[in-house]
Amino acid sequence: MSEQVRRGRPGYDRDRILAVAVVVFNEQGYDATSVAHLADRLGVSKAALYHHFDSKEELLAVALERALGGLEAVLAAPDAIDGPVSDRLAAVLRGAVHVLVAELPYVTLLLRVRGNSDVERAALERRRAFDQQVTALVRSAQAEGAIRDDVDARVATRLVFGMVNSLVEWYRPSGPERAGQVADDVLTVALEGLRTR
């Protein structure tokens, strides 16, 4: 017996299904979205969806990996590892803005997870690890006298990333602000406000 060719709706490969699922998760919330909702939005059967992803949880895991993998890559980039610590911190902030802009729906989803499942808890743990590494960079910059030390490093990190993460609420790729300019503006507001006099 020859193997049957699985057919889905034309144009719906794994990446496209993921992109649509992330939009629906962001609109309705992950918990409130069923596989039936996703299949309806895509105009495919649930079986066609399961051809590409084993479960709704796998869709979430792949989506969150896209956001987290991008952020973790920023910390591993050469300009975040070598050089003066203030330059490394600036590289991380600039890189985080670029990841957020490039992966806007995926980072939006990451920022909305609450830890209601194993997949979400693992993502939150990775986010905490990212924050801790950035906080360590802030502490090092404070120790070197590159930025002011009268603000707790953890608080400074949260405030700066609160600003960066707010981009998911207002930044639109079709708008007038380009990613590079937004990154420059974030660095100016964040680091000029922290610099020693």
Rank of each mutant, 00 (worst) to 15 (best):
M1L: 13
Q4L: 15
V5F: 15
R6W: 12
R7Q: 13
R7G: 07
G11K: 01
G11F: 01
Y12F: 12
Y12V: 09
D13H: 11
L18T: 05
A19E: 12
A19K: 04
V20C: 05
V23A: 14
Q28E: 10
G29L: 01
Y30C: 01
D31M: 00
T33M: 08
V35I: 14
A36D: 15
A36M: 12
L38E: 13
L38Y: 04
A39C: 10
D40S: 10
R41K: 05
L42D: 10
S45P: 05
A47C: 04
F53L: 03
F53E: 08
D54C: 02
K56C: 08
K56D: 10
E58T: 07
L60G: 09
V62A: 13
L71D: 08
L71V: 02
L71T: 03
A73F: 12
P78I: 03
D79K: 06
D79P: 14
A80G: 14
I81V: 15
I81T: 15
D82Y: 13
P84N: 12
P84Y: 05
S86W: 09
D87W: 02
R88W: 04
R88G: 11
A90Q: 15
L93I: 12
R94T: 06
R94K: 03
H98G: 01
V99C: 00
V99P: 00
V99G: 00
V101L: 03
E103L: 03
L104T: 07
L104Q: 07
P105Y: 02
P105E: 02
Y106G: 02
T108I: 01
L109N: 02
L110V: 04
L110M: 14
L110G: 04
L110K: 02
L111Q: 13
R112S: 14
V113S: 11
V113N: 12
G115H: 08
D118M: 13
V119K: 08
A123L: 01
L124V: 00
E125Y: 00
E125L: 02
R126Q: 06
R126D: 04
R127W: 09
R128A: 06
D131C: 03
D131P: 00
Q132T: 13
Q133R: 13
Q133K: 11
V134Y: 08
V134P: 11
A136Y: 05
V138F: 03
R139Y: 04
S140K: 11
Q142I: 02
A143Y: 02
A143L: 08
A143Q: 13
E144H: 07
G145W: 01
A146L: 05
D149W: 07
D149T: 14
D152A: 15
R154L: 12
R154K: 12
V155D: 15
A156T: 07
T157K: 00
R158I: 00
M163S: 09
V164G: 06
N165W: 11
N165F: 14
L167S: 12
W170H: 13
W170F: 14
P173D: 03
P173V: 04
E177S: 09
A179D: 14
G180W: 01
V182G: 04
L191I: 09
E192M: 14
E192Q: 14
R195W: 13
T196F: 10
